[in-house]
């Protein structure tokens, strides 16, 4: 029986395969094709309109000599580390606290998840006002009497990226908390009982038993956070539009500005190719370990 089925592998589930053809084509033409096109044109000196006039690596030399690009990369790294570490830690802590069978769990969950319902643009605008020195946190505390209180991250070049990270954490941590909570709920009650019988303290149970068991949840979370980091753009536009000066620029904004404002497609393509490359450097080894490894086992 199995002998007759094997050669027909291609026609198994034919309906499903036909149904997925549009998506496969979209993925190939739009994603892969678009990416290849972008990489190809990043070696040209295209200005407003794409032109196949190759200039070798000129666009890349210029890119890496541009202070704004270097600042963008540095900001992305700081922002990335902060949002990765803090959203994981805060998200997990909140989830663990909510998991203690507390009262009004639903209410707390809703409150924590609520910011996620807002877009980055709205988040950025809200935090622009909250961090405004005259009207926001600093203004309120000063009006209460602490006149020397100083909290003005958005107008200070050296710490502005932290001001943006605060807004991002406020918006995104709720989602991470929910994912973690789902993961915690997936853990069998018996594990907890067994740990309690063995007299293992709660923090140790979390750290050495529960977290390792939650590996799939952590990986999903990691991918969600990481993709959010690389594409950060709207938050910066709404909150500081890259300012003060160019202190809070990010790579995605560089790409957009040079493609459309500066009418220099070649430069924008080169920058977006570098972004793709950085994503690949992170994703490829991980995918290899995650999927390649499992197949061998």
């Amino acid at each position: 029986m199995s002998k007759s089925e094997r050669p027909n592998q291609l026609f198994r589930n034919l309906n499903a395969k036909i149904a997925s053809i549009p998506m496969v084509l979209t993925a190939l033409v739009v994603f892969v094709g678009g990416t290849a096109w972008t990489v190809l044109y990043s070696f040209t000196n295209s200005k407003l309109l794409p032109r196949l006039n190759f200039v070798g690596l000129d666009q890349y030399y210029r890119l890496w000599a541009t202070p704004r690009w270097l600042i963008s990369i540095e900001n992305l790294l700081i922002y990335g580390v902060i949002s990765l570490v803090f959203s994981l830690v805060i998200g997990f802590l909140l989830a663990a606290l909510l998991d203690q069978k507390i009262r009004f769990e639903d209410t707390f969950r809703t409150i924590f998840l609520y910011p996620f319902a807002l877009s980055f643009i709205v988040t950025g605008l809200v935090w622009q006002w909250l961090l405004n020195p005259d009207f926001g946190v600093q203004g309120v505390v000063r009006s209460l009497g602490w006149t020397s209180f100083d909290f003005n991250p958005l107008y200070n070049s050296s710490i502005v990226i932290y001001g943006i990270s605060i807004a991002a954490l406020w918006q995104g941590t709720g989602l991470i908390m929910c994912l973690m909570l789902a993961g915690l709920r997936g853990i069998d009650e018996d594990i907890w009982k067994a740990a309690r019988v063995d007299g293992i303290p709660m923090w140790k149970t979390y750290l050495f038993i529960i977290i390792p068991m939650m590996r799939p949840v952590f990986i999903t979370t990691l991918v969600i956070i990481a993709s959010g980091i690389v594409k950060v753009y709207d938050l910066v536009v709404a909150q500081t539009s890259g300012g003060p000066g160019i202190a809070s620029e990010v790579p995605a904004k560089y790409v957009y500005d040079y493609m459309f404002f500066a009418q220099n497609l070649g430069q924008g393509f080169a920058a977006s190719t570098m972004m793709l490359l950085s994503v690949m450097i992170v994703i490829v080894p991980w995918a290899y370990l995650e999927f390649g490894g499992r197949r061998r086992v």
């Binding site: 200005k47 407003l48 541009t66 202070p67 704004r68 070049s157 890259g242 300012g243 003060p244 000066g245 160019i246 202190a247 500005d257 040079y258 404002f261 500066a262 009418q263 220099n264 430069q267």
Partner: peptide
């Protein structure tokens, strides 16, 4: 000037005024 050069100039002076 081309828009490209204008943009580079903008980047420089917005940094200059803020720093």
């Amino acid at each position: 000037l081309s828009q490209d050069s204008q943009k580079q100039k903008e980047d420089l002076f917005s940094e200059f005024f803020a720093k």
